[in-house]
Each structure stands twice: as C-alpha cells, then as structure tokens.
Design a protein around this nucleic acid. Structure first.
Length: 156
DNA sequence: GCCAACGTTGGC
DNA sequence: GCCAACGTTGGC
C-alpha cells in the first residue's frame, strides 16, 4: 500500500465535492503532466491512500484522506474533442494519459496547512515543498504519519 | 494580479 | 540534442 498526495483547486473540485459524488467516488482525470502520468499509469493501485490537498487558495492545505479504488487506466477525457482535456495525439490504442478512481475516506479533524508543512523539518523533502507544481506526488509512510498526526488522527 | 519555477514545444 | 520561446501552475 503506497501513499500519495493529490492536488486540486477546490473551486474546481473539492474534498466536499468528492463526498457528494455517487458512492463518494470520482475519476481523477485530466492530469496532463508526464511525471504525474507515470505515477497514475505505473504505480498507483487500488487500496493506495491519498492525502487530498487544496491548492491555489489563501491557505493551501491537506484537508482529508481518500482511497484509490481503481488503479491506472486510460483517461478517456483525452479522446473527447468537445472536452477541456482533449488531446488530439491520444487514441484508444495509444491513450497517452491515464487516470485512477478515488473514493472519499475521511476528513482531517484539523486541516494541515502548507505553512505547517514547510515549517516542519521532517517534511522538508516532500515534493510539495521542493517541487510544488507536481500534482500527483508520492508520500513516504513517515510523512503520512506526521501529517495525519498534525491533522488530529493519531495512528492508523 | 504578479511572478518565479518549471514543463513543453519546436526550430535549428 | 540544444535552447529559446512559450504556457501553466500555484504561492504570495
């Protein structure tokens, strides 16, 4: 079981939006970055756990936990010429882009802000701190425990 | 809204 | 394969 951090702008799709989905489940589609694509395609599997991060807001923060319920498979939104994620280079046989499905798990009793994460030396190696633009990031078990503890969840 | 960081594209 | 131009992300 691996741990990840997924970023989203809450104005576009928020943790509450995920909670309000049928089955609390949604496709994580539209990722158009090769490094993030490689994680989606090759590494992220059903059962993996996800820190749900809200970006591009006054106080960016991890707000909750989600679970991967389907591992990487072709992102069909790249094939829809009317969709905003269309990529003319993609095809059924060469999908290029991949997505996973995630399900709402639980909110953090206290959100963990980017400021808190930056101020914690034990979290200094997180891509969130070093390469903030990557939208799908691996999280180590140690980082996972620390962030959950900061968020008010003791151990799991 | 600004701008730094950085990923992508395309000419050569 | 280099690198300049360009576009996007995301913190501030």
């Amino acid at each position: 079981m691996n741990c990840w951090l997924f970023k989203t702008e809450p104005g576009c799709f928020s943790f509450d939006d995920l909670k309000n989905r049928p089955d609390m489940t949604e496709h994580w589609d539209g990722v158009r970055n090769f490094q993030a694509r490689n994680f989606l395609r090759d590494t992220i599997r059903s059962g993996d756990r996800v820190l749900f991060y809200h970006s591009s807001i006054p106080e960016p923060a991890v707000v909750g936990i989600a679970e991967v319920v389907r591992g990487g498979y072709p992102d069909f939104t790249a094939l829809d010429p009317d969709g905003e994620h269309f990529d003319p280079r993609a095809s059924v046989s060469e999908p290029i882009w991949y997505m996973v499905d995630v399900r709402y798990a639980e909110p953090l009793p206290r959100q963990v802000t980017l400021e808190q994460i930056k101020n914690n030396p034990l979290l200094a190696d997180m891509p969130l701190v070093k390469r903030s633009r990557l939208s799908i990031q691996p999280v180590t078990p140690e980082e996972w425990q620390i962030i959950l503890a900061l968020g008010g969840i003791e151990s799991r």
